[in-house]
Design a binder for these strands. Structure first.
Lengths: 197, 197
DNA sequence: CTTTTTCACATACCGATGGTACGCGAATTC
DNA sequence: GAATTCGCGTACCATCGGTATGTGAAAAAG
């Protein structure tokens, strides 16, 4: 079927190597502390290859961030999709988001460097396009169904999104495993308050 | 009284010029996009002066961030202190925090670049030392008084802090003035849920 | 099969940036 | 008034992100 060809295969392989190594380095040491020389070195290519695939360091980061966000978005969607009830979709989607973003390979790129490197507005747009969209949708459904009292969804979505982002960052540094339970419990209570008449 | 002397006065003046101009530039264009050459140029000095007062670009930013955080912390403390009731202190402290961090001169430095430049852990420690401390204290008092059900305060503080941070960033980009009311209302409801038995 | 074109990538180079070493001169100290 | 401090300017350096150009193999054209 797909005639592939040596050309395109090598191209994709190089691109994946660049994305993979830069993601690893960005995760370990942050965007600002990683040089392009390191990235291309780790990927086994040169800057020529990097600039052939990406428009610069910032665009490379954007591509990495897109991967990370899609990964999180997919996990959230799967967790939510496992439930029929709209309310359960919200709750379990939120829990999965918390679990996914607590992982070390996600945090720094998605929650810390993302807004600083690309600007908060651009970051927000990307976030909305991937994981945050699920939250907005879930809330909209619940309002439409009357489970949650009628109100603008956007403020609610931002409050909850921010709460979970910060909580995830904190949990990642926490040493006490009970913190996760406590946070989940507190989050559950916050969510539960939404459907109080 | 204070014999001041030409030496110390000039020193303080230079330091204030560097802090002021760098705060302005960091706010306008972000940490990464501002060069030291620009800063010293705007402040009317040279790099020699900058490195005499600060250990580098990162430490200069840290000093600026400290100023910004103290400013916010003071506003929150004042707003909360205007009320006797512990619950009112929490509510009005949160509202003031939202108002303070929605201002353009605060946002980028405190909420976007801060964690990325200094690392989330260091940023958190600084935040806790200034504005976030008030939130933790207020919640602790409320739990002690029995107004809020007994529970670990830290998870709650992080959830609320993150919620307000994100909300402030969103509000700053929002064009609809009604968004502020809606967000405040939603936040009030979130807080109010804390004292439901 | 031969020629031509494409293109994925390497090499060499550039201006700008953060950072350092050192010198100077006026304010302070003795 | 001599000695010393120190706030700051000057000159310089390594490294960074980014660009221009070369090259060789794969693909297309003949």
């Amino acid at each position: 079927m797909t005639e592939r060809g040596v050309r395109v295969r090598q191209r994709e392989e190089t691109r994946r190597a660049l994305l993979g190594e830069s993601r690893r380095l960005f995760t370990e040491r942050g965007y600002g502390a990683v040089s392009l020389a390191e990235i291309v070195g780790a990927a086994g290519v040169t800057k020529g290859a990097l600039y052939h695939h990406f428009d610069g360091k910032e665009e490379l980061f954007r591509a990495v961030l897109e991967d990370v966000q899609q990964e999180v978005g997919r996990r959230v969607a799967e967790a939510a999709g496992a439930h029929e009830d709209s309310w359960d979709q919200l709750v379990f989607g939120c829990r999965e988001f918390l679990a996914a973003t607590t992982a070390p390979g996600i945090q720094r790129i998605m929650l810390v460097d993302g807004p600083a490197v690309l600007g908060w507005t651009a970051w927000r747009a990307m976030d909305e396009a991937s994981s945050a969209r699920h939250l907005t949708e879930a809330l909209t459904v619940l309002v439409d169904e009357g489970v949650v009292p009628a109100q603008p969804v956007a403020p609610l979505a931002h409050l909850l999104s921010g709460a979970m982002n910060e909580a995830a960052l904190w949990l990642a540094t926490s040493t006490d495993p009970a913190d996760l339970e406590h946070t989940t419990a507190a989050l559950d209570r916050m969510l539960d308050a939404l459907r109080a008449a």
